[in-house]
Simulated assay, not measured.
Amino acid sequence: MKIVIFYSTLIEDTKESAEILKNLINAEVVLIPIERAKDECILKYNFIVLGASAYNGRVQNSFKIFISRNIKTLLGKPHALYVNGDENLDILYNLNKAFTPELIESSFACGNFGYNINTDRGNFLERRKSKKLIEKSGEIPSLNKEEIENYANRINDIIEKRVG
């Protein structure tokens, strides 16, 4: 089974979670950043994973455009969705920022992997926002590796049922 993970990222946490996920899935997995995604890429894969960075309640515009342009094809393929966002928010809140209701309802798996903050990444304003967020919350957010592993296990179960 060939799987693709299309991801959008603002602060590299969604790329990092995609790489962790790739290493946990028992299949051939290709990572494609949304900026390099071609519409015809979707047709080459048996299973699609879409990962979005939900930062300050927003998702990259290029990600939303890709989904809207390819919604019929995506709905016709087995798919799973995840966001990198605030785990204190309801998972549907973050999912609804990134995906259409039809994609969410027809998805084989949905997840929220949390997010990382790296005060050394980004431009001056992004670094400053990150530092203020850490000061305000009193903690440094991190990816939820247990959630990523559980999500990978759900995908592995789907693969096993389809291939096995």
Rank of each mutant, 00 (worst) to 15 (best):
M1G: 02
M1W: 01
K2I: 01
I3G: 00
F6G: 05
S8D: 07
T9K: 01
T9L: 03
I11P: 00
E12F: 02
D13P: 01
T14F: 03
S17L: 03
E19I: 03
L21D: 03
L24K: 03
I25H: 04
A27R: 06
A27D: 06
V30R: 13
I32Q: 08
I32K: 08
I32G: 11
P33R: 11
P33K: 13
A37P: 11
K38D: 13
D39C: 07
D39I: 11
I42C: 06
F47S: 04
F47Q: 00
I48L: 03
A52Y: 01
S53L: 02
S53Y: 05
R58S: 09
V59I: 06
Q60F: 03
N61I: 13
S62G: 06
K64H: 02
K64A: 13
K64M: 15
I65K: 15
K72W: 11
T73S: 09
L74K: 10
L75I: 14
G76P: 11
H79S: 04
H79V: 09
A80M: 11
Y82F: 15
Y82G: 04
V83M: 01
N84C: 15
G85A: 07
D90W: 02
I91D: 08
L92W: 06
N94K: 08
L95N: 12
A98I: 10
E102W: 08
I104Y: 11
E105M: 07
A109Y: 03
C110S: 13
C110N: 12
C110Y: 09
N112P: 02
G114N: 05
Y115T: 00
Y115D: 00
I117H: 01
D120G: 14
L125C: 12
R127V: 12
S130N: 14
K131A: 15
K131W: 10
L133V: 15
I134M: 06
E135N: 12
E135H: 07
S137L: 14
E139W: 09
P141I: 10
L143W: 07
K145E: 14
E146M: 11
E147V: 10
E149G: 03
A152T: 09
R154K: 15
I155K: 00
I159G: 06
R162Q: 12
